[in-house]
């Protein structure tokens, strides 16, 4: 267990020292501040716009961290053989996978906490002219935390998928491309299913629809983690839904890296 912790620790440090991080932080700060000006362009639903813009920046920053920092770091390890610095010690492949993954998770957790604070601050700035955060329809801090938590889970799932592709492919760019494709599918398959089920002029086989539904959870279903609409419209979100989402996300995150440690050389 100690070696996993040590590996997580140096992975976290690598993240902190990474120059990519400074760029991401700077970009996020600019975008969050720009929320103040963007919301002024709207006279109605300022709260919804502020939440949408805030979480869009949150997603961009989070995905940049996952793709450019997390997967970039991992790709250098696997494809430039930096991993040999670790496994030349009495460290097994699964310990390497676990240590590296937990280190990146820890880094993402801290990054999301910082982004969450920025996001809440940008929400406060954006809604200041309309009476502040409390003036939003049924605003709840708990719902804001739940939304941030679900975004974190989605980012961790992308990281786990990226981890898998980085290990089983021979190129870091290919791994990033495949992960991005999964990200797009994960966000759009749910919409496709809704169109097939609810579309007035659409006729689809029930078997085909059920197959797509199963596939959307295999891919994974990232749209399910996007619960900011509940926050922006002040809708209630069942605790059981959140728990289920958490269980699905966590089981997905832990199952993806398990498949890949045999390929590491």
């Amino acid at each position: 267990m100690n070696i996993i912790w040590q590996l997580s620790k140096i992975t976290f440090k690598q993240g902190i020292y990474s120059k990519v991080l400074y760029g991401i932080v700077l970009l996020s700060a600019i975008l969050f501040v720009s929320n103040l000006f963007i919301t002024q362009l709207f006279s109605l639903e300022i709260g919804k716009v502020a939440i949408d813009v805030g979480f869009a920046v949150f997603s961009i920053a989070g995905l940049s961290i996952v793709f450019f920092m997390g997967l970039g770091m991992l790709s250098r390890d696997i494809h430039q053989k930096n991993i040999r610095m670790v496994i030349c010690h009495p460290v097994s492949r699964w310990q390497y996978v676990a240590g590296k993954f937990f280190g990146l998770c820890l880094f993402l957790l801290v990054a999301v906490a910082v982004l969450g604070v920025f996001s809440a601050f940008s929400l406060w700035l954006g809604t200041a002219s309309a009476g502040g955060i409390q003036a939003l329809r049924n605003f709840s801090w708990l719902m804001l935390f739940a939304t941030i938590f679900s975004h974190l889970l989605a980012l961790l799932i992308i990281l786990a998928v990226g981890f898998l592709f980085t290990v089983i492919t021979s190129s870091g760019y290919l791994a990033m491309l495949l992960t991005f494709v999964v990200y797009i599918i994960g966000h759009s398959l749910d919409t496709v299913i809704k169109v097939l089920v609810q579309g007035e002029y659409v006729q689809a086989d029930l078997f085909f629809i059920n197959g797509l539904k199963c596939l959307s959870w295999v891919f994974p279903n990232l749209a399910a983690f996007d619960i900011k609409v509940y926050l922006s419209y002040g809708l209630s979100y069942e605790l059981s839904n959140l728990l289920w989402l958490g269980a699905y996300g966590i089981s997905y995150i832990f199952s993806a890296p398990v498949f890949d440690n045999g390929h590491i050389t």
Binding site: L7, K9, I10, K13, Q14, Q80, N82, I83, M85
Partner: peptide, 16 residues
């Protein structure tokens, strides 16, 4: 030598 270049020698030796 494949090294984690952002880290210092002290940090790398600590890990090893």
């Amino acid at each position: 030598p494949c090294l984690y270049e952002q880290l210092s020698a002290a940090e790398l030796l600590d890990f090893c």
